[in-house]
Every structure is written in structure tokens, then in C-alpha cells.
Amino acid sequence: MLAGGPLYAVQLVVNPSVPDTKLSPSTVRALFNMRLLQWSDGTPVRVYVLPDDNALHRQFCKRYLGVFPHQLRYSWNRRVYSGIGQSPHQVKNVEEMRQRIADTPGAIGYLPEDLIDDSVRAVEME
């Protein structure tokens, strides 16, 4: 799975408690750049990502954010190591991603379409 490409298309998912049902491309970029920190109802945003070299992560960066993984890493590192921000929570694999999003209010991440079940909710980008 790591070496080859992902078999299913990547889909943005959130914890079912998240009030927003549609997100604009600029909102999605702001969320994953760690600069939009709360949902419309004030719940803190919790961002989950796979490692930089993961094929699904690369596909997500390209399709939803229009950036390369190294650009995101630069921006997260700059915030974290100068003390002005935090980085997303990194998970090891898609199973952990689904579990953490299902368990954490305000969570956002991404999954291959075939792994989406009732524990999480798919979100469309406008």
C-alpha cells in the first residue's frame, strides 16, 4: 500500500459532531495549514494527517490543498519551532486515522472512500 498508489480515491472526513457540512477550498487549506482553529460553532479543530511520504497524504495534498507535502511541512515546522502555532496530529495508518476522527470531537482528516463508515462523516468541498 505504501509503495504502490492508493486503490481508492481520497475523501475528506470529519467527526460527526462537526456542524459544517460543506467546506470551501480556502477553508480546507486554512484548516490543514493550522490557521483556522475552530468550527463555526466554536468547537476546536483537531487535524489528523498521515506521514509526509504516504501515498494517500500526497494525493490529499494535491487534490484538496493544491500543495506539495514539503510545503505543508515547512509551514507547520515554522509555526511549531518558533512557538507561534501547533502541528497536526500525525497518525500511522488509515485505520488509526478513522479511529481518531471517530473518537475526537472537532476532528478532520481524510480516508480512502472504501474505509468510510458510520463512525465518521464525509465532507464535500464546494
Binding site: 490557521r35 518558533s82 512557538g83
Partner: peptide, 25 residues
């Protein structure tokens, strides 16, 4: 003040000098 179009805030304490592309880190 923070939403998807702007963020405005203040910092107090010891902060890294924002110079060039690399100085902060």
C-alpha cells in the same frame, strides 16, 4: 480575531525574531 480570511493577534514574552526565511527556526 480569527476566521478563514484573517487572523489578528498579539504576542508577549520572548519571541523569535522574524527575519528572512530561516531565522525563526
Amino acid at each position: 480575531f480569527s476566521n478563514e480570511t484573517w487572523r489578528i493577534g498579539v504576542i508577549g514574552g520572548r519571541f523569535k525574531n522574524p527575519i528572512g526565511l530561516y531565522n525563526d527556526t
